[in-house]
Design a protein around this nucleic acid. Structure first.
Lengths: 168, 168
DNA sequence: GTCTGTTACTTGACATAGTCAAATCTAGTC
DNA sequence: GACTAGATTTGACTATGTCAAGTAACAGAC
């Protein structure tokens, strides 16, 4: 599975990071998997690729990538942290209340902060993080089954990533 | 501490909930404390009022309130869940990257969703949750001390609620 | 090629923020 | 006052991380 190894190695070096097997495996897993994955899903993908990996290694690698700006972390309310390779633009996200599927929403402004409140309460604001909530295409067809799209959000403890939408 | 007991009792009854000592204590704690409190801070305030309370009771009460629409829950990335009594409008929040202080930001639209993306990716969107990130008035004066308002957000594991801002 | 220092990985314990299930209690109704 | 659905309490458990210390290995110098 060396087809993109060189590119990833170069990305790591460019970011000032050493090239290691776990790091390449994380990058490959993120590039080949769904665009928003949690640490657990990454660990599982790594396991299929390079064998068992300690959870701590996954978190170490992801933290290093975060600090180097290689990945971005989001954390929709009620779900675990999700990591994505799409960095540099200031896009937003839409999350399905029912299955937790997550997709990207382009930001019109393109850079942070894309919104400026009229009254900031004295805060110096540098980013507006927007999360849209609703129902994904698949779940829209199931609304009669007890869905409450107009009420509070459902507990989003589903396996996010499993129901990942590819609409982004 | 009965000064507002009748009002809270009525609120509970109006919401179809039984009036109990823990529930009144939660409402009082939330009304008298800072506008965004976590379950732990609520438990502590209750303890001062009615003695020791199991953590599970706090979560039970808060869940009942959530389902009844008496409180709203937010969960800024990296922090624990915060509860607020301000419901019904679609206001947003600003969170300090450094100390976790949280304040309300009025929504111009006033009702959800206040933003409508051009391309929804097939999602049926009913709410746009906006979280502004930046530095609170107190922390703006400390930026020379290693602050990185332009970088990624700092780990927000501080005791949110302790540093609560009153600027909202 | 190999030596060496620094960085990364691994192991194991621990922390936080909750949820789940069953038993007990009590507010509200008759 | 008795009854009963709903609320509280108790205790165990889960999920999602972090911390610290020892070991392994990458990358540059020779």
């Amino acid at each position: 599975m060396d087809f993109a190894r060189h590119d990833f190695s170069q990305s790591l070096r460019n970011a000032g990071l050493r090239v290691t097997v776990p790091r390449l495996a994380v990058l490959t897993a993120m590039a080949e998997g769904s665009p928003h994955v949690d640490a657990d899903a990454i660990a599982e993908a790594m396991r299929a690729r390079i064998g068992d990996v300690p959870r701590q290694t996954v978190y170490n690698v992801l933290r290093a990538f975060l600090e180097a700006g290689l990945v971005r972390r989001i954390e929709p309310a009620g779900s675990r942290g999700l990591y994505e390779l799409r960095v540099g633009d200031n896009h937003h996200h839409v999350v399905c209340r029912r299955c937790g599927a997550t997709a990207d929403i382009d930001c019109v402004a393109g850079r942070a902060p894309c919104l400026e409140p009229e009254e900031t309460g004295g805060f110096l604001i540098d980013e507006a993080e927007v999360t849209f909530w609703g129902l994904c295409p698949a779940c829209r067809g199931l609304t009669s089954e007890g869905g409450d799209a107009t009420g509070r959000r459902e507990s989003a403890t589903n396996h996010i990533g499993r129901g990942e939408s590819d609409v982004g």
